[in-house]
Simulated scan of single mutants.
Amino acid sequence: MIDKPCRGLRKDAERNRQRVIDAARELFAERGVEATLNDVAHHAGVGVGTVYRRFATKEELLDAVFEDGIDQVVCLAESALKQENSWDGFVWFVEHLCELTAQDRGLREMVYSSAYGGYGVDCARLRLTPPISQLVERAREDGYLRPDAEPTDMPILGMLAGTVSEWAGHVDPELWRRYVALLLDGMRHREDRPPLPVRALCDDQMDAAMRGWHPAG
């Protein structure tokens, strides 16, 4: 008899925690990581104190929301590597990566900036590098991908798709697909293509860019 209220409280607490996470995911997807814990509480329909009891800081909430999201990108890359044709796998990954980053502003900002998130998100982000590098190297070695394409080009493709969606998504939510198709066509290896005018960022430069970009809020 004594245990029943405790169990009920634990269930209520877990429901409230999941309610906050679900609301934060929706809100960050739409508005990006500029949304505050107060905004999340309002969107979830709970008191501000409920959010702060579950997540003492915004970084804790971001970890809970986006660690799985970044893992999803890793899984996409690993699935693309299983495709027999390296170009088909490369295209499949780019299209799905860009779909995620076009539709989820918060995930886009978490993947491309180190301004927010904690250790869990950092570890998940580091897991992106090996499978993405393998995708690029495999398609390049098979002669499908232009030889001056680099793994560090891949995150920028997602960023570009997200920018198109953020700018014109209210007019045509699928417009980003047009520009991803144009970018992919430009990445195919052809003997008559001149070399790209600027080298890709190296890993250190990419890290510096991520550290220097602070999304609004």
Rank of each mutant, 00 (worst) to 15 (best):
R190P: 04
E95K: 12
V164S: 09
H170R: 05
A200Q: 08
L184G: 01
E67S: 15
M206Y: 04
C6R: 11
Y116M: 12
T36I: 09
F93D: 00
R54T: 08
R15H: 05
L183A: 15
D148K: 01
R140I: 02
D153P: 06
F55I: 10
G45T: 10
G69M: 01
T152A: 09
A168C: 15
V136P: 00
P5I: 07
G143I: 04
A200Y: 05
P147E: 03
L182A: 09
P173C: 08
G8W: 03
H214C: 06
A23K: 09
F90W: 05
M1K: 12
V121E: 06
M210V: 00
Y144D: 07
D192C: 03
D203T: 10
P215D: 09
A115T: 03
I2G: 09
F93Y: 06
L81A: 12
V46T: 14
E150Y: 12
D204V: 08
R193Q: 13
C6V: 13
D122I: 07
C98E: 05
D148T: 04
M154A: 02
L201R: 10
R190I: 01
P173F: 04
K11I: 01
I70M: 01
N38M: 15
T152F: 00
G186N: 13
M206I: 04
D148M: 03
A24P: 14
I21R: 09
E26T: 14
V65R: 07
V164G: 09
L81G: 12
E60P: 07
G162L: 07
L61M: 11
L27E: 08
V20P: 07
S133C: 09
D3H: 12
E84D: 14
P197L: 11
P173H: 08
R15T: 00
T57P: 09
T36P: 09
F93R: 00
D71F: 01
E67G: 06
L126S: 12
S114K: 03
G217H: 13
Y52R: 15
V164K: 07
A149W: 01
E166W: 12
S86M: 02
C202R: 14
L97N: 02
D172C: 03
S113K: 00
V51H: 14
A13S: 11
T50F: 04
R178T: 15
D153I: 06
K4N: 11
C6E: 13
D63C: 08
L196R: 15
G162W: 05
V180M: 03
L100G: 08
P155Q: 03
R178K: 15
P5D: 10
T129E: 13
L107P: 09
G8A: 14
G45Y: 10
A35I: 11
L27G: 07
L128H: 02
V20R: 07
G49H: 07
H170K: 06
Y116E: 14
Y179H: 13
M187E: 05
W87G: 02
G69I: 02
H43T: 14
E191S: 13
L160G: 05
R31E: 11
M1C: 10
I156C: 03
L135Y: 00
G106M: 04
R211T: 00
R105N: 06
I21C: 10
P195F: 03
E99A: 15
R177N: 05
T152I: 02
H43E: 15
R193F: 06
A200V: 08
L201F: 13
E109G: 01
H42M: 11
S79P: 00
V65E: 07
